[in-house]
Simulated scan of single mutants.
Amino acid sequence: MVDLFLCPIFVLVMANNVFIYDCLRVPSGKKGGLYKKVLCENLTSFLVNQLLERNQKAKSIVTELVVANSIGTMGNMARYAALGSTLYSSVLSSTVDLQCGGTYQAIKHGEALIAANRSQAIIAGGMESNSLMPTRIYNKNDPRYTENSHIGVASFSPNGNIDLKQAAENLALKYGLSKKQMHLWTLNSHKKASQFVGSDLYLKHILAYEGNTTGEQLIRKDLTFESLERLQSKNLIDRTNSADYHDGAGLVLLGGENSFSSKPLAQIVDIEIIGIKPNVAPEGCILGAESLLRKNGLSIDDIDIFEINESFACKPLAFMKYFNLDEGVINVLGGNLAFGHPFAASGALNLINLLCALKLSGKKYGLVSAGAAGGFGCAILIENID
């Protein structure tokens, strides 16, 4: 007789497909600008409420709010946002930090729970306020403490920080990118963004906070190549080809098949976040995407449209050169250089742009990618649902 207690039991669990049913963000604001007195938690509460109003059943089946943040105040900021919204107080809410890869991690968390049948629907995204960044100092017993100095930039590695601008310059040099190329990319980012703003699809997914009519604060319709040359410094990487400090928030509503009566916008095919050396963080947009494609047995030609984080103009340019891509398939609606780079919320901004680009073009597969401070390569592959 076989002793059943000694027999291993194997349970085959089929993963659920996970879909994006809706996505929203607020227009980005400059540091000290549009949202200079607005908590990013309040921006998030506003977006949560809009998602719940727009999607029947959402309030009754959303089990968790996962929001990324990089430079905020102490405490669970996602919980603050949840309590400021119409979500039930029983809904779990958590804040994650992966710097400008934060939204990727938030979505990965939500996607995993739904795929494992642990949740029916989750809201995930990011929020950031450079305007209200708190002033912090190290404790006097901390070996990093120096008198009369505050923490302006986090320490990302015990081996010492490399300035992200220096890392971006190294990336530009590695791929032989000129300042002229980066100026042209910056200029085109603003041009493409200007054309997208005000369109029906833009207005569907980018909502003004509490009736504010200012709109996108960063896009410059009048930007010229000559004006960029006048503003440039002697450095290869400077303000003319880098995103500045911004405020914003963006969220996506995730669910399983038939979680909602409405048709989903897209299916999440896969999410990849890998660790890389911190001093090559900007190159994470390439390394994360390459790892995701390899894992899924795909080539770069299988992807129709790409959205690459534009914290620096050299990143999409290096991506294009590495994969030998045509400029016309990358950041087709403009990128962070025009729309802003609110750190942890940037992934939501980029994903919304990618979804809109797929809808406008009728293309099937899209990939969004970023290199995150601290050394991470982040990528999400989605399939458009017509």
Rank of each mutant, 00 (worst) to 15 (best):
L4W: 11
L4H: 11
L6H: 09
V13W: 07
M14Q: 14
N16Q: 13
N17H: 12
I20L: 03
C23M: 14
V26Y: 04
P27D: 02
K31D: 05
K37T: 13
L39F: 09
N42L: 04
N49A: 07
K59L: 10
T63H: 10
T63V: 07
L65S: 10
L65T: 09
V66I: 15
A68G: 15
A68Y: 11
N69Y: 12
L87P: 06
S89K: 13
L92Y: 14
S93H: 13
S93D: 13
S94D: 14
V96K: 11
Q99K: 12
G102D: 01
Y104C: 09
Y104N: 09
A116G: 13
I123L: 02
M127Y: 04
M133N: 11
R136Q: 12
N139V: 13
K140E: 13
N148I: 12
S149P: 11
I151M: 10
F156A: 01
Q166L: 14
L171Y: 05
A172Y: 01
K174A: 11
Y175S: 06
T186H: 04
N188M: 10
K191A: 08
A193Q: 02
Q195D: 05
N212V: 10
T213W: 03
E216H: 01
L218G: 08
I219C: 04
K221N: 08
T224D: 06
E226W: 01
S227V: 09
L228I: 00
L228Y: 00
E229G: 10
K234T: 07
K234A: 09
D238E: 04
T240K: 05
S242M: 06
D244R: 13
H246K: 11
L251E: 01
L254Q: 05
F260I: 04
L265M: 08
L265R: 03
A266G: 03
Q267P: 10
I268M: 00
V269H: 06
V280A: 00
P282F: 00
C285V: 12
G288Q: 05
A289L: 10
S291E: 09
R294C: 12
K295H: 12
K295C: 06
D304V: 07
F306D: 00
L317E: 07
F319H: 03
K321H: 01
N324S: 08
L325Q: 03
E327I: 08
G335S: 00
A338G: 05
A338F: 08
A338L: 08
F339T: 05
F339I: 08
A345L: 02
G347C: 05
A348H: 08
I352G: 10
I352Y: 03
S361V: 10
S361H: 07
S361Y: 06
K363G: 01
L367K: 05
V368S: 14
V368I: 14
A370H: 03
A370W: 03
A373K: 00
E383C: 10
D386Y: 09
